[in-house]
Computed example of a mutant assay.
Amino acid sequence: MDAFLRPKNYFLADKVTAAEVTSVYHTVQHATSYRAGDCGTKLAPTIYPDSDIAKRMACGRTMAEAIVTDVLAPASVEDCLKVLKRPLNEQREATTKAHTPFFSVASDASNHGTTKLFPLSVRYWTPDLGVQMKVLDFYDDSDETSAAIHNQIVTKLEENGLGLDMISAYSADNASLNYGRYNSVFQKLKENNGCILKANCVAHIVHNSAKHAGDRLNIDIENVVNKTFSHFSSSAKRIEELKSIHTFVEIEVPA
């Protein structure tokens, strides 16, 4: 009889779990803190007092972190690998050799306290999804040499079953460590795949261009910025005119 007569709240637990995971996904999607997400979860029963799901939600910082690292991140990587391992032309004639999507890899180092962190992302294109960029791994390594970075990239790709022959390009900042003529990460990857292209960081190039161009100007840039701010901040009418310009060029108006 129990198999046919389900309790009233039989499916409620699954709905609560789905709500908690969705809440954490929202936190990650908008780059807010676990603390803010925890606060929102505690506030939900007050905002929605008639919701049994809101009353049962409990997703503190520790639980939210576990959902990200043990549920959302593995699911994201799994979805990415399914696409990268599925032949693009499997529907074509049998005489045509099927191949999986080509992809570029990108890596960079950033400091988090005393820890050196390296994200490893891939960028690829398929007819159904278009251009996609996914984070494949996120690891820490105190060794920042070109040999260590190259070894980590190769190891992570092989662990995920991705062939080095399908790499189309390598993207990183323009430091000699990454793109130097000798003993750089790019040169080491070229030894694995001679067809890999450089995908230099465009933002870094633009930054360096603006930096060196600013040094050649005969005016004080900082003084110009201060005067521009003073010009608009002292007049409500000028601010409204500035907002209309932002709207015209489809740029979000700063708060």
Rank of each mutant, 00 (worst) to 15 (best):
S235N: 07
L164S: 08
D173R: 04
K116I: 06
V154C: 12
N218E: 11
D173S: 04
A203Y: 00
A106P: 02
D165C: 08
F186N: 00
A210Y: 14
S121K: 00
K198N: 06
F186Y: 15
H112P: 01
K156S: 15
G214H: 05
T100R: 11
H207P: 02
A236L: 12
N192F: 12
F186H: 12
G194R: 11
C195H: 13
N200L: 13
K237D: 15
E191A: 15
E241N: 15
N174F: 07
A210L: 15
N193F: 11
C201W: 01
A106V: 01
T126P: 10
Y179W: 04
L177D: 00
A210E: 06
S146G: 10
D173A: 05
L129T: 10
P119I: 07
S121D: 06
N218C: 08
L136M: 06
S110Y: 09
Y124P: 01
H231L: 14
N218T: 10
Q152Y: 03
S104V: 00
K156N: 11
D137R: 06
S146Y: 07
I219Q: 10
I153P: 02
L129S: 08
P101V: 02
S104D: 02
G194D: 14
N160E: 05
A210D: 04
S230W: 13
E222C: 02
S235Y: 08
G163M: 07
G214F: 13
A106Y: 02
A148V: 01
M133D: 08
M133K: 14
L136F: 01
Y139G: 09
D165E: 14
S110K: 06
Q132F: 04
D220E: 04
V202E: 09
E240C: 07
N178M: 13
E222M: 01
H99A: 01
S121N: 06
L177Q: 05
N174Y: 12
D137I: 02
S176Q: 10
L197E: 02
R123W: 07
T100V: 10
V185A: 12
A175D: 07
V154E: 14
F229C: 11
T115V: 13
N111L: 06
A213W: 11
N200F: 03
V135F: 03
N223V: 05
L129Y: 07
V225C: 06
D220T: 03
K198V: 08
E241L: 15
Q132C: 12
I153Q: 10
H112S: 09
R216I: 12
S171G: 08
V202I: 15
W125Q: 06
S110W: 14
T155E: 15
L162D: 03
N208V: 04
K134E: 02
K227D: 09
M166D: 11
N183H: 13
L120K: 00
G161W: 07
G180T: 04
L162A: 00
